[in-house]
Amino acid sequence: METLSIARSFDGTQGVYRHRSDVCQCDMTFAVFLPPQAKDGPVPVLWYLSGLTCTHQNVMDKGEYRRAAAAHGVAIICPDTSPRGDHVPDEKDNWQFGSGAGFYLDATEAPYAANYRMASYIAQELPALIGANFPVDMARQGIFGHSMGGHGAITLALKHPGRYRSVSAFAPIARPGVAGWSRPAFEKYLGTDEAAWRAYDSVLLIEDGHRVPELLVDQGKADGFLDDGLRPWLLEEACRHANIPLTLHMRDGYDHSYFFISTFMADHIAWHAVRLGSS
């Protein structure tokens, strides 16, 4: 693991790191914010998964999470959104596929299957690296994310019961298998047999019996992707049928941007902190 940068912030440290990923067969970059409480012992971990076109950098620059994370004593881990490199297959002119658009799944179709294994990377390889190198308590993990990352956070939590004590999302893609901006990517990564897509669809995972203790979702009513890409009412209906407590905030006037995310970031971190036993 290589340290790319370290900066002091709110008496904690914001670091950026790079390592060789065996899972994704490329170098991967990620960010870690350690709150000041980490000097005294392991702190809880909160994973933040970013959306389409993003890297680890977007939420670092615009998410405004460090003040709240420092106040509550929570480490924030910000992975990249996809494998990257000259040898990694990509579609340079398609922002909804390839680099920046890994959809937190394990691809099964050539030529993408060798590198696009973000589900295994986030669930297995990167946690092992984090646990071995940082003062964190891996028994107290939460996960959240935005848009594609909200989809990833919810699906990972549903498929790994007991691992994440808390899960929330900003404007998650509720049904990526039918949404206009994700269905083509699913076909390329997973093939045309839609039965294979169920493992990466929050609504269908809930229909298939997967559960989380509760969910928190914030969604802007002025989000231009609301009707075609996001459709939180489908997640709301699935949770109601499955008796999963869902707190869904529909926020007047807010769009899909980091202006929206940063407005409610502190609320989400405080919500997770309670469930992670750090507040």
Rank of each mutant, 00 (worst) to 15 (best):
T3I: 15
A7L: 08
T13S: 12
V16P: 00
R18P: 06
H19K: 12
H19N: 11
V23S: 03
C24M: 13
F30M: 04
F30T: 02
A31L: 02
A31T: 04
P36E: 07
P36S: 14
V43T: 12
P44L: 10
P44C: 13
L46P: 08
W47A: 02
Y48P: 02
Y48R: 11
Y48L: 11
Y48A: 09
T55S: 14
T55L: 02
H56P: 00
H56D: 01
N58R: 01
V59M: 01
D61P: 02
R66A: 11
H72G: 10
C78T: 13
P79K: 09
R84K: 11
V88W: 03
F97S: 07
G98C: 07
G100M: 03
G100E: 00
A101D: 00
A101S: 14
G102Q: 02
Y104E: 04
A113D: 13
A114I: 09
A114T: 09
A114H: 12
R117A: 01
M118G: 05
M118K: 02
A119T: 05
A119N: 08
Y121Q: 09
I122Q: 01
I122T: 01
A123I: 05
L126R: 03
L126K: 05
L126F: 03
P127W: 03
L129H: 11
G131E: 15
A132V: 12
F134W: 09
P135H: 08
Q141D: 07
G142R: 07
I143P: 01
I143S: 10
G145Q: 03
S147W: 01
G149I: 01
G149Y: 00
G152V: 02
I154V: 14
H160W: 01
Y164P: 10
S168Q: 00
F170Y: 10
A171N: 06
I173F: 00
P176N: 13
A179V: 09
G180E: 12
S182C: 15
A185R: 01
F186P: 06
K188V: 04
G191F: 05
E194T: 15
A195V: 08
D201G: 08
D201A: 13
S202T: 11
L204M: 14
I206P: 01
D208N: 15
D208T: 14
G209E: 09
R211E: 14
P213E: 13
L215A: 07
D218P: 00
Q219S: 11
K221F: 04
D223S: 11
F225L: 13
F225H: 13
R231T: 14
W233G: 12
C239A: 08
I244L: 06
L246W: 06
T247I: 12
T247G: 04
M250F: 05
R251H: 06
D252H: 12
H256T: 06
I261L: 10
S262K: 05
S262Q: 03
T263H: 11
H268R: 13
A270H: 06
A270Q: 12
W271Y: 13
H272R: 09
A273G: 12
L276Y: 04
L276S: 10
G277R: 10
S278C: 14
